[in-house]
């Protein structure tokens, strides 16, 4: 459990894809920073652990049904936070396609697979921005996208995943310029962190995980809450009031030339 400065005390944040992995860790970190944390998930019953983690760190959890591919659900999630707490200070879009850890056979696959990735990571990135805009404009808040190093270097195994994560970086740069006059900041984090898929790999293929860890100068994969959470909180806090249009690579030094 992390203990962060209360940089987000009383602030209201929506974190999508917060049921597990990086999303859960980032949500818990916002809780530790004092935030009211909207836990956006497709299935509310899957959010109990995240809610407990947010509460345990001193934050206020609010479980929200928010399948980001459903425009009504994402709009309702935002409106509920604003209705109940009077404001929205940050949106952290972390949700990814359920197929994001699968290999993509680029030469033989179809647009259906592309759609799985694009609907969550590209279209929802735009739609959440549009839906949150009036509230972020009012709070002079922040929009944070959880991208990936794969979206910078391109992945042989996951060309679709890396392409849609790249989309978020292009989006961040342009929207930061567009929303700068509104004092809304737009950034992204490219984390290398332990995910549910990697947890599974640790059990099934421990040597492979060791090899991956061996590529990280700091010698380990990032912890979602204590390694990825704090920089995410920072970027949404007033401490980062002059930071916009950036992608912060949080990878233990694994990626140094991005």
């Amino acid at each position: 459990m992390s203990s962060l400065p209360r940089l987000m005390e009383g602030r209201v944040v929506l974190v999508t894809g917060a049921a597990a992995g990086v999303g859960r860790g980032v949500a818990a970190a916002f809780g530790s920073a004092g935030a009211i944390v909207g836990i956006g998930v497709r299935r509310p019953e899957a959010a109990e652990e995240t809610a407990a983690a947010v509460a345990a760190t001193g934050g206020t959890p609010v479980i929200l049904r928010c399948d980001v591919t459903d425009a009504v659900q994402s709009a309702d999630a935002i409106e509920q936070l604003v209705r109940d707490f009077g404001r929205l200070d940050a949106v952290v879009h972390n949700a990814v396609s359920g197929r994001s850890s699968e290999a993509t056979d680029f030469e033989n696959t179809t647009l259906d697979e592309w759609e799985d990735h694009a609907s969550v990571t590209v279209r929802a990135t735009w739609r959440l921005a549009v839906q949150a805009y009036p509230h972020l404009q009012k709070s002079q808040g922040a929009y944070l996208l959880m991208s990936s190093p794969a979206g910078i270097e391109g992945s042989e195994r996951a060309p679709f995943y890396s392409a849609v994560k790249a989309a978020q970086r292009g989006f961040v740069r342009a929207l930061a310029r567009e929303w700068g006059p509104d004092h809304i900041r737009v950034n992204s984090v490219a984390p290398l962190a332990i995910s549910p898929a990697l947890e599974n790999m640790k059990i099934l293929e421990p040597e492979r995980v060791k090899r991956i860890e061996g590529l990280v100068p700091l010698g380990r994969l990032g912890d979602p809450e204590t390694d990825i959470g704090p920089p995410s909180v920072f970027l949404c806090s007033d401490e980062a009031r002059y930071v916009t249009g950036q992608t912060l690579v949080v990878s233990g030094g694994r990626f140094t030339s991005l």
Binding site: I152, G154, P159, A163, A166, G170, A174
Partner: peptide, 11 residues
């Protein structure tokens, strides 16, 4: 446009 360009570049 910026979003599309970055996507295609990394693809």
């Amino acid at each position: 446009l910026c979003t599309a360009v970055e996507t295609i570049r990394v693809m």
